[in-house]
């Protein structure tokens, strides 16, 4: 009899379906896309959907201040202020934490990175979170000076969270219309999965897309979804009507 593997459902039906129920529990997944592609919304939806099922989550922001993040959340049906007030969803500005630690330099030393990693683990442990989001890992990598440090940081973060059965999403910002999944091209190799938010051109308009590029431990197809960001419903997916892409390729 097949053993039912444990998954962490994103709460976005089409996506969960594609991944056999959800992201394998404890995975570290890179959510990649250009700015405005819906990375933050997707991650927030992931956290709030989890919180509704009783899974506590934490969102570490590096680029956006807290008030802006919560302002953007208002209006989404998945958003529930009570979940924040009750501590089911925690939104933490990592810059403040770093500031308090005295890590306010542009570049981190190995020791700095170690201290930051420790505090992240400690916070995750203290809050007993099952879902963690880092928005964005690109901004963090910018402060780590070498590829080895980036590799080390993501790897250690991923493994220590996996031990806690905490599923992690790291957002990764790439320039628009590129076929790179991460700025430093290391993040993608260390992560267990990649969700790529891109776009395809159709008759001069850009259609947002989502593609599961890689997901260790689950069978998935690399078919593209059309992604819609509804002001109320958040991220919605539908199989992409494929004809266009094929045609536009032919025309090239």
């Amino acid at each position: 009899m097949p053993i039912k593997k444990e998954v962490c459902s994103t709460g976005i039906d089409e996506l969960d379906l594609k991944m056999d129920g959800g992201i394998p529990l404890g995975s570290t997944v890179l959510v990649t896309g250009c700015s405005g592609s819906g990375k933050t919304t997707l991650c927030m939806q992931f956290l709030f959907n989890g919180a509704r099922k009783g899974e506590r989550g934490v969102f570490f922001t590096i680029t956006e201040p807290l008030f802006k993040l919560t302002k953007n959340l208002e209006g989404f049906a998945f958003y529930d202020k009570k979940l924040i007030e009750s501590g089911m969803v925690n939104i933490i500005d990592l810059r403040i934490i770093s500031e308090r630690l005295g890590l306010d330099t542009e570049k981190y030393t190995v020791e700095d990175a170690g201290a930051l990693l420790d505090i992240l683990k400690d916070i995750a442990d203290e809050l007993d979170v099952k879902r963690l989001v880092m928005d964005s890992i690109t901004a963090l990598c910018y402060r780590l000076q070498t590829r080895e440090m980036i590799r080390d940081f993501i790897f250690k973060l991923g493994t220590s969270l996996a031990v806690m059965n905490c599923t992690t999403l790291l957002t990764s910002e790439v320039p628009p219309r590129t076929f790179k999944f991460s700025q430093y091209e290391i993040e993608e190799f260390i992560s267990d999965g990649i969700l790529f938010l891109g776009d395809v051109e159709r008759k001069g308009d850009l259609i947002r897309t989502l593609q599961v590029i890689k997901m260790r431990g689950c069978a998935h197809t690399r078919t593209k979804f059309a992604l819609n960001i509804s002001a109320q419903r958040g991220i919605e997916l539908l199989p992409l009507l494929k004809t266009t892409e094929f045609e536009s390729l032919l025309k090239r």
Binding site: R202, K203, G204, D205, A226, P239, L240
Partner: peptide, 11 residues
């Protein structure tokens, strides 16, 4: 936004 956004239309 555009009649080419067929997936959005279905949604």
């Amino acid at each position: 936004e555009s009649p080419v956004m067929l997936e959005k239309l279905i949604l």
